[in-house]
């Protein structure tokens, strides 16, 4: 009996975290006058909110922008992160430790300090309202470098020595020898980077003004804050659903990796 009550309470607890999302989806699919209802199954389904939203904002364009930006950023972080991580863990050169400490130092710097100067840099480069502004500042990431360095250190040196005897250069060693042996590190860093980039909203708000270049979270934010949703709740919720959907779908399939990845960034600090 005690067990049963325990599971009922636990399930209620889980509902507190799950139901609100379900409600958003249901409400976005309901006709405007039924939105307030708290149900599990909508009584009537209407796609009005979605068609109105699509006519008001370029949501599909924003979706593609987000995919493009997050993919470029993730690829950059993985390629450059593993290169720098390799150099710091396996190559001997002057000032190696100093560079490593500098990287650690940048991890402790709050972003508030570089926000304005970075924006001005974008203005000077004429990168405002271009994809460059969304991608280039994020191509390198201190956390990714540190994680790659750590992971490469755990791999046996004999792997690299053998490759060298076979005549591989440093790039071949990184991408042909180390990468296939670091799948878990790559998945972890890839997921964190992609997710952070996908959900980033403050920076796009600053450097992008044109609708057709906006990322999804930015577009939905401005839609919700500005007058364009015209206080029609359904339309707002439809936009929110579209924004959440891709990452929730990815989460359903790769749930274990998401949790591991996020937990490992927390533990690294």
């Amino acid at each position: 009996m005690k067990r049963v009550i325990f599971y009922i309470l636990l399930t209620l607890g889980a509902l507190v975290f799950l139901y609100p999302f379900l409600w958003v989806v249901i409400a976005s699919l309901s006709p405007e006058n039924q939105i307030g209802n708290l149900t599990f199954i909508p009584t009537s389904i209407s796609f009005d909110a979605y068609s109105q939203m699509i006519s008001k904002i370029p949501i599909f364009r924003a979706f593609l922008n987000s995919i493009f930006v997050a993919t470029c950023v993730t690829a950059g972080v993985l390629v450059f992160g593993s290169m720098v991580g390799y150099a710091l863990s396996r190559l001997e050169f002057k000032g190696r430790n100093m560079i490593f400490y500098m990287i650690i130092f940048t991890m402790t710097l709050p972003f508030q300090i570089t926000l304005i100067p970075q924006y001005i840099l974008m203005v000077e480069f004429h990168w405002v309202d271009t994809y460059w502004a969304l991608i280039v500042p994020y191509l390198m990431n201190a956390l990714a470098i540190v994680m790659f360095r750590q992971y490469f250190k755990s791999l046996p040196q004999s792997l690299i020595d053998a490759a060298r005897i076979d005549g591989c250069n440093d790039f071949q060693i990184i991408f042909k020898i180390l990468w296939p042996n670091s799948i878990s590190a790559i998945v972890t860093i890839g997921i964190i980077t992609f997710m952070t980039s996908w959900n980033e909203v403050l920076w796009p708000l600053i450097v992008i003004r044109e609708d057709k270049l906006m990322t999804m979270p930015q577009l939905v934010t401005l839609f919700a804050v500005g007058g364009r949703a015209e206080s029609q709740l359904g339309v707002k919720l439809a936009a929110a659903t579209m924004l959440a959907l891709p990452i929730v779908l990815a989460y359903l399939f790769f749930q274990k990796y998401f949790i591991q990845s996020m937990a490992s960034t927390g533990l690294k600090e």
Binding site: W23, V24, V220, L243, I247, Y251, F258
Partner: peptide, 14 residues
Amino acid sequence: FLPVIVSGVVVTIL
């Protein structure tokens, strides 16, 4: 864990 991965914008609208 679900709310952790969803964008803050969605959570706020909700």
